[in-house]
Amino acid sequence: MDIKQLNYFMAVAQAGSFSKAAENLTVSQPTLSVAVKKLEEELGVRLFYSFNREQRLTDEGLRLMNGARRLMDVYQQTVEDVRVMDHNTEGSFMLGLSPLFGACFFGDLLPGFAAAYPNIHIEIVEDGANRIDEKVARGEVDLGVSLNTDRLTAAVEKRHFTTQRNVALLHESHPLAERDSITVADLRNESFAIFNHNFILHRQIVEACHAAGFRPRFALLTSQWDFMVELVSKNHAVSILPKPVLEKQSHPHVKCIPLTDSMKYWDIVLTWNKEKYMPRSCRLFLDYISRNLPPDDL
């Protein structure tokens, strides 16, 4: 017994005639008759009897009609649940997010989405952007937040999220602290406190130093930006961080100087593996973010 058989059976019961039911369903009468006959054979009961040129339900037919109405209600609701994307949508997906991006941009986005879609659960996988890229490429997360680089694989789709400025962090007494702007080359004689190898920003800083003609010396490699700020505040190192980080972790003895070379901007993208199925819950989140992007700082 399937949905089509039940639909045919209910049409005959409601019309009281095979010919009228066939006309309502836009099928031939023999097709309808055969379908109902097969249903009776499958169930081993008689569903209709003829009286005054009408098809009337037997006791077994009445019981099937009552059950069929409930089944069709459930079926229609299931179809609607699949088609309609509303605030009652349920589901879950995995979001790859570094603590840095989370602290800077998702403090309002995640609660806002949860309020709009309370039945969707987001499982956050926290790691550096390098590893998030790897997880996206392997299909281990549904959506990632990363830096825009030429190392993203062909299987990875990306969408702009925000562009922010990078700044050099210097102690207030540093000779460069009063400059309006500096370049990475100006920092060639400094010791750096920067993110460790799990972060794309680490690679970008090192490559920028090499492009400027020097190999950087490291006072600290860490995943904690507050640790970097602390070293700079004690005049033990310099650092390069995105400007939004300093809005979360400012220090009175640390000056933030804009960079003007290849490290000028921090271009953040949303990434996903286009060869992997994206759950509807994740698509809703992607659409929500696209409507609530943080402003670019250009």
Rank of each mutant, 00 (worst) to 15 (best):
K135V: 08
L32N: 01
S173Q: 13
H174C: 09
V12E: 00
R83L: 15
V232F: 12
D186L: 02
L298Y: 13
A168Q: 10
D296W: 00
L286S: 10
A219S: 05
E157C: 11
G91N: 03
I122K: 02
S50L: 13
A237M: 10
V84K: 07
P216N: 04
L246Q: 11
D186V: 02
L246R: 14
I120L: 05
I122W: 02
H236C: 09
L152K: 07
I120N: 02
M10H: 03
V12R: 00
M228Q: 15
P118K: 02
K234P: 08
N189R: 08
Q55P: 04
L97I: 02
P118T: 03
F18L: 01
R63E: 12
T149Y: 14
K234I: 13
E190H: 01
Y8E: 00
E40Q: 03
R159Y: 07
N52M: 12
S92Q: 10
I3F: 04
A116H: 04
P111W: 10
Q55N: 10
C104L: 08
I200N: 06
I205D: 00
L221K: 07
N273S: 11
N235E: 14
E157F: 05
L143S: 06
T149W: 13
D267E: 14
E40G: 03
H251W: 11
P252K: 15
T89C: 12
K37S: 14
E247C: 10
C104F: 10
K234S: 12
H171A: 05
M263G: 11
H210I: 13
T58R: 00
E41P: 02
D287W: 07
F51V: 13
L176H: 04
C256S: 13
R165M: 15
F214V: 07
L270E: 06
D180I: 09
D2F: 01
Q204A: 08
P279R: 07
R83I: 15
L39F: 03
W266E: 14
R69Y: 07
Y75C: 00
L293I: 11
L170T: 03
K274P: 08
P30D: 09
V125Q: 14
T26A: 12
G61A: 01
A155F: 12
F101I: 02
D59V: 12
F285N: 05
A168Y: 13
V141E: 03
D86C: 02
S281H: 05
G112S: 12
Q77S: 14
R63I: 14
L221D: 09
V34R: 15
S17L: 01
T26L: 10
A219Y: 08
M228G: 10
K158W: 11
Q164L: 12
V206R: 02
T153L: 15
V74W: 01
L143I: 15
I122Q: 06
F51A: 14
R46P: 04
T78A: 02
T271G: 09
D133S: 11
E134R: 15
D142V: 06
T260F: 10
Q224Y: 09
D296E: 05
T58A: 03
V145G: 07
T162Y: 09
Q164F: 06
P244K: 11
D297N: 08
L152M: 09
F285Q: 05
P244Y: 11
L220T: 04
K255C: 06
A13R: 00
R280W: 08
A21Q: 00
